[in-house]
Design a protein around this nucleic acid. Structure first.
Length: 420
DNA sequence: TCTGGGGTCCTAGGACCC
DNA sequence: TCTGGGGTCCTAGGACCC
């Protein structure tokens, strides 16, 4: 048995925790650069505000309905997430953190008199400890637990828990779930299944296993087994190291200025290097990409990218920046308005088994100490306090974040003030 | 004016090997 | 009419997720 615990409207719930007066107001959180709507409170959903729509298209709507708008505050959400996960981990020996606001609890063979009751206790504990509302779905496999969670939100909202405890309840859930709402079925596969006349999860059970394998690859075959109640998806209980690390951002506005792109790429490269060091990895290749704005159909488009192999696997800021700038040298062209650029590092390996190039005799021990010091300062004094020269200090491609809340729980000068 | 960012897994096909 | 057979590794691209 698995339980999937999912925080309700997580980002808005985090914001409300420190602004309780916003409890019944429609509230949205925007993506980086205040670009799109990426999270909505129930009230905002009821106003018909669509997920992923550009903020500027919604401005009139926001104004008319007094929607409260927030820029995303990942420092705050990340810290609240850690707290929620800590409470959840007290319920089971094995917890799989699936995303910032979701976790699978492996119930293994544990026997509870009533798992539904356990779900209610989980909900109550998280609300009491952290103040974030959660929904719990419980079923035989992870795919079914996901579905149970969704079903709880749709059909058993006030309880906030759905436990597929018997054939009858399982049936109710499968029939109520549309194919494209199954975990692992996206737009393409959803359309394919519907074209064959399969509309709900219940119908998918009637599809031959071979057909699923042929048309939806082994992923579809596993999903089909999971729907039948046969666990087919592995769990990761230790936080696995990332296999690729990406840092990318849109520029505040479109730019053709090469020096601005250099500066941004240097910062993204430094970001990748720091994430590498944090998980004690080195990378063996570096991919750099540039993008123009596809929405500007009247502009000439150019989306180059290139992958460079490292001479030696590395996590050194200076080296990774150098590769990124070399890559830019190769792919940059004048006369295009770029919207976004990024750096992806791949071929990750643990930095203690560093595979040394035969001809690499450079002593890196000094650099290592310097970077450790840099990480320490940046961690305690804020991101970007110490940086390499090319990263520059005055941000010329600064992101917009006009509605940012405080980092209430992680920065002492931003804590909540209470007037008595 | 303004359209996010960061991941995973799978498959097909090419390079290369014996 | 005829061009071996069987592998591995790597990469690009497509599907999906939050």
């Amino acid at each position: 048995m698995f339980a999937l615990v999912d925080c309700n409207n997580f980002y808005p719930s985090c914001e409300r925790l420190f602004r309780p007066e916003l409890r019944n107001r429609p509230l949205v959180v925007l993506s980086n650069n205040d670009g799109c709507v990426i999270a909505r409170s129930d009230e905002a959903k009821m106003l018909g505000i669509v997920m992923g729509t550009p903020a500027y298209m919604n401005n009139a709507h926001f104004k008319k309905n007094k929607v409260v708008v927030f820029s995303s505050n990942y420092t705050l959400y990340g810290d609240m997430s850690d707290r929620v996960m800590k409470t959840l981990s007290s319920f089971v020996p094995r917890l799989e953190i699936y995303s910032i606001d979701e976790a699978f609890l492996d119930m293994g063979d544990m026997v509870y008199a009533d798992l539904g009751d356990l779900g209610l206790r989980i909900r109550h504990s998280v609300m009491q400890d952290i103040g974030i509302p959660v929904t719990v779905g419980i079923a035989a496999t992870k795919t079914l637990a996901k579905m149970a969670n969704r079903h709880a939100k749709k059909a058993h909202r006030s309880a906030g828990v759905f436990y597929a405890a018997n054939a009858h309840l399982l049936d109710e859930m499968l029939r109520a779930t549309k194919v494209e709402d199954i975990w692992g079925i996206g737009k393409q596969y959803g359309t394919l299944l519907r074209s064959k006349g399969f509309d709900t999860a219940f119908d998918v059970l009637k599809v031959p296993e071979e057909w699923m394998r042929t048309n939806l690859t082994v992923v579809g075959q596993r999903l089909w087994n999971e729907l039948k109640g046969i666990p087919a998806i592995e769990s990761e209980y230790e936080q696995p190291g990332k296999k690729n690390i990406c840092t990318s951002r849109s520029f505040g506005k479109l730019t053709a200025d090469r020096t601005i792109i250099e500066e941004a790429l240097a910062n993204h490269a430094a970001g990748c290097a720091e994430k590498l060091r944090r998980q004690q990895s080195v990378c063996s290749s570096i991919h750099v990409f540039l993008k123009t704005n596809v929405h500007r159909v009247e502009h000439r488009q150019y989306m180059p990218s290139i992958t460079l192999q490292c001479e030696n696997a590395t996590n050194y800021t200076g080296e990774i920046i150098a590769y990124a700038l070399k890559a830019l040298d190769i792919i940059y062209r004048q006369g295009f308005l770029f919207m976004k650029c990024g750096v992806i590092v791949s071929g990750l390996a643990a930095d203690n088994v560093l595979q040394k190039n035969l001809f690499d005799h450079k002593d890196r021990s000094q650099g290592k100490k310097a970077l450790a010091a840099l990480d320490k300062i940046n961690k305690s004094m804020g991101e970007g306090t110490v940086r390499m020269a090319v990263q520059r200090f005055e941000k010329r491609y600064a992101l917009r974040a006009d509605h940012l809340s405080n980092r209430y729980t992680t920065h002492i000068d931003e804590i909540l003030n209470v007037q008595l």
